[in-house]
Design a protein around this nucleic acid. Structure first.
Lengths: 269, 269
DNA sequence: ATACCAAGTTCCACTAAGTGGAACACCGGG
DNA sequence: CCCGGTGTTCCACTTAGTGGAACTTGGTAT
C-alpha cells in the first residue's frame, strides 16, 4: 500500500545521469527540492512515510530527511506519531489563503456536470509541463477509474491536457514538446509534433478535446479548458468514461454540458 | 495602499541585531525566506509589488528578487504585468490538495454565526507562535474592524489565541512564553505569565475566552477553540464587537452560538 | 534464537548555492 | 531638470546544503 509513485510524470531533475556533465536542464536547488517535498507531503492518502516522500519527490533520502526537519521547524509539515509526515498548520493556513476563491460554487458546478452526464468528472490545473488533478467526482457506475486527486498527467495524452494545449500560444507548445518530448502511453497516443498540432487545430475548432484511449486503454474522455483572464488556459474539466459503455459518438454529446461548466468556472478559478 | 506590513507579528528571524553573535534563534536559511515570501505572495489584496513582499517577508530586496525568480521558474509564483506577483498554478494546485476539507460547510457555519449575532466573525488557524486569520465575515454594522484575512496576531492578546492556549499542554504554553515573551498591545493586555495562566484556567472552565480591549482599544471579542483529533486546538472562531455597542455582559451571550459553531467545525477543519 | 531486510537516522568532507550591500537603470512627478 | 522611490543587476564572500555511506531500529521469516 505504498502511497507514492503512481505518478506517470517523471519529476524534472529526477535521475540526472552522472558523467556527461553537459549543463543540461539545471537539476535542483534546495528550494526546488523542498517544494517538491512539500507537494509530496500534501498529496492525499494519509500521512506519508519518508521513503515514499523520497520516491515521490525524487530527492535523496538524507536530503529529504534534513529538509523535512526544516519544514517541520517552520510549521509547514507536522510529524505524525510513527515517523509519518502530514501537512502542518502553516501550510494549511497558506492553502486557506490561496484557495479563497469561492470553492463552494466550484463544487456545485462540477456536481451538476456529474449529475447531467452520470459519469466521472475531473477538474485539473495546468501546472507547468503537466496537469494536476485537484478534484474528482465519481460516476454513478460501479466502476472506479484509477485516477486520483493529486496525480499528475502529461498534457498531450489527456483530454484536458489537449484542451489546454490548444489554447496555449504556438510558441509555448513548441517549447513544451522540445522539453518533454511526446512519450506514448498507449498505442493510440499522439507521439509526433505533426499529429499533435493537427489534433490541437481540430480541438480549437470544436471547442473541446477527446481522449480516445490515448492515455489509458479502455478509458475515453471529453475535456474542455477553463480560460482565465486574457484567455490563458489555467486548467480544464473532463468527463471520463469506459469504452465499453460509451461510444465515441455518445461521449461527444456531453460536450455542451461540459462547455457550460467550464464557462461557469472561468471567473471562479 | 501598501498591502504589506500591517502585521503585528514580527517574523521570526527578522532584524537579527548584528554584533553579539550569540547563536540566539537561528536567523534564516534559503528555505525559510522562500516560504515567508510565498506566504506574502499568497496574502490577499491583489498581486503584490516587490517592495511590499520584501517588507512583509523581512527579506533583503535582492534576495527577495532572486527567490521570486526561482519561485516563478517553479510555477509557484506568477509574474503579473507590471512587475507584480501573484500565486502561480503550482501553488494553487498545492492549495487545492491541502484544502480538501469541504470549505462549503465551513462557510455556511460561519455565516450562521454571523447572522445569529449580527457581528463580525473570524476564523483563525494556530500557526506556530501566532494566529493566522483565514476567513472574515463582516457584521451588519456600518463599522469595519481593521483585521484582515492573512493577518497574524499574537496568541496571548486575542480571544481566539487565549482559547487555543487554554487547550494546549502547559509545557507548550511555557515554551511559547519563553520564546516570545508577552508583549503588551494595550494597557489591558496580560503581560505576566501568572496573569495569563490564571486567565487560561478561567477560559478552560468557561469553555470560551474574552478579549476585553487586550488586543486593540475599543475592540471586544469572544473566542472559542476548534479542537482537532486528540483534542489538540487547531484554531478558533471569534465574534468581534466594538465596546461602545456591546457590553462585557452582552458579549458573553454569544458564547452558546459560538460554541455550536466551533463544535460543528471540528470535524471539518 | 538468529539472521536478515527494509526503513529511519546520523555523520561528514566537499562545494555549489545562496547572500546582501552597493551600484545601476528606470520612471513619473514636482 | 533633478529627485525619490522602485525594480534590476553585479559580485566577492562564506554559509548552508549535499548525498554517499555507515549506523540504528524494528519487524519477520527461517
Amino acid at each position: 500500500m505504498s502511497t507514492a509513485d503512481d505518478n506517470p510524470i517523471p519529476e524534472p531533475g529526477a535521475a540526472p545521469p552522472p558523467g556527461r556533465g553537459g549543463r543540461a536542464s539545471a537539476a535542483g536547488s534546495a528550494l526546488e527540492k523542498s517544494l517538491r517535498i512539500l507537494e509530496a507531503v500534501a498529496t492525499p492518502g494519509g500521512p506519508h512515510r519518508l521513503t515514499d516522500l523520497t520516491a515521490a519527490a525524487a530527492v535523496p533520502k538524507s536530503s529529504t530527511f534534513r529538509i523535512l526537519a526544516s519544514l517541520i521547524e517552520q510549521g509547514f509539515v507536522r510529524p505524525e506519531a510513527d515517523s509519518r509526515y502530514a501537512p502542518g498548520p502553516r501550510l494549511r493556513a497558506l492553502a486557506a489563503l490561496v484557495g479563497a476563491g469561492e470553492p463552494a460554487d466550484v463544487e456545485r458546478i462540477l456536481d451538476e456536470l456529474r449529475r447531467a452526464t452520470g459519469q466521472t468528472v475531473h477538474l485539473a490545473l495546468h501546472t507547468g509541463e503537466s496537469l494536476t488533478y485537484i478534484r474528482k467526482l465519481e460516476s454513478d457506475q460501479p466502476f472506479r477509474t484509477a485516477s486520483r486527486v493529486g496525480m499528475r498527467m502529461p498534457l498531450h495524452t489527456t483530454a484536458i491536457g489537449k484542451a489546454v494545449l490548444a489554447h496555449l500560444p504556438a510558441e509555448e507548445v513548441r517549447e513544451l514538446i522540445a522539453a518533454t518530448g511526446l512519450p506514448g502511453r498507449t498505442p493510440r497516443s499522439l507521439t509526433t509534433p505533426q499529429a499533435l498540432r493537427a489534433e490541437l487545430e481540430a480541438v480549437r475548432a470544436r471547442g473541446f478535446a477527446v481522449d480516445d484511449e490515448e492515455n489509458e486503454p479502455t478509458i475515453r474522455c471529453v475535456g474542455a479548458p477553463v480560460l482565465g483572464p486574457g484567455g490563458r488556459p489555467v486548467g480544464g474539466v473532463s468527463v471520463t468514461t469506459v469504452t465499453f459503455l460509451v461510444s465515441r459518438e455518445q461521449i461527444e454529446t456531453y460536450a455542451p454540458a461540459l462547455r457550460a461548466a467550464t464557462e461557469a468556472l472561468a471567473p471562479l478559478l
